[in-house]
Amino acid sequence: MAKVLVVDDSASMRQMVAFTLKQAGHEVIEGRDGKDGLSKAQGAKADLVITDVNMPAMDGLQLTRELRKLGDYKFTPILVLTTEAGPEKKQEGKAAGATGWLVKPFDPDQMMNTVNRVLR
């Protein structure tokens, strides 16, 4: 069982991702936007971060950069949720320090396949 931080400004997406993770036996912490996500990350060390990119207050890329600055999150897998399958957007995520990405739309099975690539 891992502790996963899920950050998305869309409540329905967040619920879906969180529910799927909980079904798989993981513990989930939720963040409403980048800023909220960052403070939640500081409050509890997560084993995996899944974040949306487009969010108010602080976007997912900035959140990723901020997390990488924290000792606790230097090597933590961070997955960004993106609607763009093009290489440009993916590279933006990588450049910010993300481990990988998950392209929307995805279903719970696809999501867990991806999550299992980075979670032990």
Binding site: D9, S10, S12, M16, N54, L81, T83, P105, F106, D107
Partner: peptide, 15 residues
């Protein structure tokens, strides 16, 4: 405005 459209697109695809 962009963000609103973006969220709807992503959610609609997923759901």
């Amino acid at each position: 405005i962009f963000r609103c459209a973006h969220s709807i697109k992503g959610g609609a695809g997923t759901f």
